[in-house]
Write a protein that binds this DNA or RNA. Structure first.
Length: 506
RNA sequence: GGCCCGUUCGUCUAAGGGCUAGGACACCACCCUUUCACGGUGGUGAUACGAGUUCGAAUCUCGUACGGGCUACCA
């Protein structure tokens, strides 16, 4: 009896894909997978003036990176195409005309200047932004205020016109929202939205209803910013296809930045990404940072995004994608907006790096090191290094800071940290230690540490006083994993070389 | 201005009429560590306010305040 679950993500290709958009994708995806349904991506490109080249491809790249692949889309095909609204232009006109015939919509011939004049003329203190609504429409140039012959004549003459919905005056539209329960609106406070634009393209309002119908969408999830226009969509469903065919709605809470609505600016200002992947605006060349390039694992990204406004009722916080699919339910999504906390997002990533196996991290880390000029790294060495430092890395990009010295000798040293306590005795110790190291055949952590301590005792120096200089000789500064772990991985020749080189400077 | 949505530690949240309002991030302290981290243990910290219903309210109702969204031939 229940129809097949089909959900859609419907972005407009106008720029980067931010956290809110990605979370909408995620919830759609999880919901669909859980019910064994279809996840569809439909490109809402009805506004040619806002079209941005590359944005569509970028969106699909983000979905691919996050592992949220659609079943149907302009890229993946499907039985309900085309999946770009610009390619469906012809489909919408008939429905708009049908509404006019049914008396639920009308032609309007007002020019942009007319509309501007109306807004000025009717602007008052109480009503700073007058709407084209039931109170105003009889004062404008439309098929309601002229006789039908004149409207027909104007259209025949090629006059520019739009089709507007004729909102009823005092009806209450009520619908059930999966995250908020019942929501009602008085139709008299919503304006006569344009359905079909002068260029023949539909607006979002018409297109979303027609396409959701034609694509047999069963559940429609979108951002909370759509809630105020929901009554228009509900009415359109009622007039065109019947309320019984209408998808179930869920208006998702907004993701907020430190000062309200999350924006690109917040990212730049507070130093965190807001887009899934790097996005360069083709017009301004402005680069907005993405979570991928910042060093996030896709699993961690999805994980923290899912928890921004949803939880499974237990205290579990780390979820794999499979677990999320298994546990997700739209009813447990919060109705309140969530402020994005970058610190917590990083914590998720840290947890994910820790739990991800070395083998899965290898190629990412290799690419990262390559980009900084560290090439030709052998696999076994790379694996040992990752194992040693992964617990210290919050972001993938931390692997560089935590490990470059395994692949490249330092060329300057934190001498200020050494000099004040440096002495001939210590120099003598390291000279002897070089000899001792060259005789060691069992190059292992315990042996190395033991030999160091023994020699120090023989020379009457506290081993602790020697460890810091030793570390600085090897890596250049006061950082890195435990000293003898570094020595072990560096190997005999490299360790001796580094001591010699540093001794010349100290 | 109007309409709609929302409000539990600084942040994300649990508790759907009944234990001392629980967890996580962040922060602080201690432990571990002769670098820095990780880690471990503990701590500070919240039901916006005011009424009402009730034996009993974070939870239900109303009002107020505050926050957010919308108010385009953009989505």
């Amino acid at each position: 009896m229940d129809k097949r679950v089909r959900v859609r993500f419907a972005p407009s290709p106008t720029g980067g894909l931010h956290l809110g958009g990605m979370r909408t994708v995620l919830y759609n995806y999880l919901f669909a997978k859980k019910q064994d349904g279809d996840f569809i991506v439909r490109i809402e490109d009805t506004d040619q003036s806002r079209y941005v080249p590359g944005a569509e491809e970028y969106i699909f790249n983000c979905l691919k990176w996050a592992g949220l692949q659609p079943n149907e889309s302009p890229l993946h095909g499907g039985d309900y195409g085309p999946y770009r609204q610009s390619e469906r232009k012809e489909q919408y006109t008939q429905y708009a005309e049908q509404l006019v015939k049914q008396g639920q919509a009308y032609y309007a011939f007002d020019t942009p200047a007319d509309l501007e004049k109306m807004r000025q003329d009717f602007k008052t203190e109480q009503n700073p932004s007058p709407q084209y609504d039931h109170g105003i429409r009889m004062k404008m140039r439309n098929s309601l205020t002229m006789n039908s012959d004149e409207a027909k004549r104007l259209i025949a003459e090629g006059a520019k016109f739009v089709i507007r919905i004729k909102m009823p005056e005092h009806e209450t539209v009520t619908f059930k929202d999966l995250v908020r329960g019942e929501v009602s609106f008085d139709t008299s406070v919503v304006d006569d939205k344009v359905l079909l634009k002068a260029d023949g393209m539909p607006t979002y309002h018409l297109a979303v209803v027609v396409d959701d119908y034609l694509m047999k969408i069963s559940h429609a999830f979108r951002g909370e910013e759509w809630l105020p226009s929901a009554p228009v969509h509900v009415l359109l469903w009622k007039y065109l296809f019947g309320l019984d065919k209408m998808p179930q709605w869920a208006h998702l809470p907004l993701i907020l930045g430190p000062n309200g609505k999350l924006s690109k600016r917040d990212g730049a200002k507070f130093g965190f990404p807001v887009f899934a992947m790097n996005w360069t605006d083709p017009k301004t060349n402005e680069l907005t940072e993405g979570f991928k390039e910042k060093g996030f694992l896709p699993g961690a990204f999805i994980n923290f995004l899912a928890l921004l406004g949803w939880n499974d009722g237990t205290e579990q916080e780390i979820f794999t994608k499979e677990e999320l699919i298994d546990k997700f339910s739209i009813e447990r999504v919060h109705s309140g907006g969530a402020k994005f906390d970058y610190e917590k997002a990083k914590w998720f990533n840290h947890e994910w790096i820790r739990k991800t196996e070395v083998g899965s991290l290898k190629s990412e880390v290799r690419i990262l090191l390559n980009e900084t000029g560290l090439t030709g790294i052998e696999n076994p060495m790379l694996e040992k290094v990752i194992t040693l430092v992964k617990d210290r890395c919050t972001l993938l990009t931390d692997f560089y800071d935590q490990s470059w010295f395994f692949f490249k000798a330092p060329d300057n040293w934190d001498v200020d940290a050494v000099k004040p306590k440096w002495s001939e005795d210590k120099k003598d110790f390291f000279l002897s230690y070089i000899d001792k190291l060259s005789t060691i055949s069992n190059w292992q952590l315990a042996t190395l540490e033991e030999s160091f301590k023994t020699l120090a005792t023989e020379k009457n120096i506290k081993p602790g006083d020697l460890q810091l200089p030793f570390r600085i000789m090897l890596v250049g500064g006061k950082f890195g994993p435990p000293v003898f772990n570094i020595v072990e991985l560096l190997g005999k020749d490299e360790t001796i070389n580094r001591i010699k080189k540093a001794l010349a400077v100290f």
